[in-house]
């Protein structure tokens, strides 16, 4: 059997496992059974390994990184979301985080699964080593923002229950979610800055100008401005908690629009579908 067959099989498997993990996390959140939580984390990890194998098969098959059409981008973003989640998980061991991040991952993968999967060679504009750096930083940046959003959602839920005076025992402290979300956002922001800078350097080589108000360029600037606002208010005005959490969610919506909305609604030079 061919590589393609296994690649598709592994993608489907990973997708199913991500769904199972998401459901598991949900059960964990409402029932707070430790075992279910552990199971979901293990499932996410296994799903990630399988997903990675599928990606590697695709890389072998196409002879390049999976960065050439919307399906491959969405897939790589999913992969990076799970990667960032697992990194955060294995450092801080907050099982509940998965309940808010894994659904994002499986939604993104669901979006990917609706797109044409054919392997096509790179078009001339994409034949550059900047592709790796530019898209590589982009997926890491978006992965971090997804995790930060998950943490912010968790914070909001935590707060609500605190008000009702029955703190959910298996959620990490609200304060911790808030801080961690901020740190992860800061990292994502640093990466987003790199995406824009490498994009500008590449645009200079490929399109002759480093900045041309292409919709994708403009929307990445808008996302950058939103996160800049967040970081300034946080650092200088001590914005924390609720407002910061909402801001982080708005920032992520903006990220999603930059990624999907711009390609679908505002096509420009940058839409490789």
């Amino acid at each position: 059997m061919s590589l393609v067959y296994f690649e598709e099989l592994f993608f489907t498997l990973a997708f199913i496992i991500y769904i199972i993990a998401s459901i598991g996390f949900f059960v964990f959140l409402v029932s707070s059974k430790e075992k279910v939580g552990k199971f979901s984390v293990t499932a996410s990890t296994i799903g990630f390994v399988i997903h990675t194998i599928a990606m590697i098969l695709r890389i072998i098959e196409s002879g390049r990184l999976p960065f050439s059409n919307q399906f491959e981008f969405a897939n790589s973003f999913t992969w990076a979301i799970v990667l960032c989640y697992l990194v955060i998980h294995y450092i801080y061991k907050f099982t509940a985080v998965g309940g808010f991040v894994m659904p994002l991952a499986f939604l993104m993968m669901g979006y990917a699964s609706m797109l044409p999967k054919t392997i096509k060679p790179l078009m001339p504009a994409l034949q550059s080593r900047w592709l790796t750096i530019h898209v590589g930083t982009a997926i890491i940046s978006y992965g971090s923002f997804a995790v930060a959003t998950g943490l912010s959602l968790m914070y909001l839920i935590n707060e609500r229950h605190k008000v009702k005076d029955k703190k959910i025992s298996h959620l990490p402290d609200a304060e911790v979610c808030d801080y961690l979300s901020y740190r992860v956002t800061a990292f994502g922001y640093l990466m987003l800055t790199l995406v824009i800078v490498t994009g500008a350097i590449w645009a200079k080589k490929a399109w002759s100008r480093y900045w041309g108000w292409d919709p994708k360029e403009t929307w990445s600037l808008i996302t950058w401005i939103i996160y800049s606002t967040y970081l300034h208010l946080r650092f200088n005005r001590g914005w924390k908690g609720k407002t910061a959490a909402w801001f982080s969610i708005i920032g992520f919506l903006c990220v999603i629009f930059t990624f999907i909305g711009v390609n679908v609604l505002l096509p420009g030079l940058h839409s490789y579908r």
Binding site: T218, W219, I222, S228, L233
Partner: peptide, 23 residues
């Protein structure tokens, strides 16, 4: 900082308009 934030928001809104209306 307040003025900076106001400018951030205005610049963002204006940029969005530029991506929605053909230029």
């Amino acid at each position: 900082l307040k003025f900076a934030i106001i400018l951030f928001i205005l610049i963002a809104i204006y940029s969005i308009i530029g991506t929605v209306i053909p230029q």
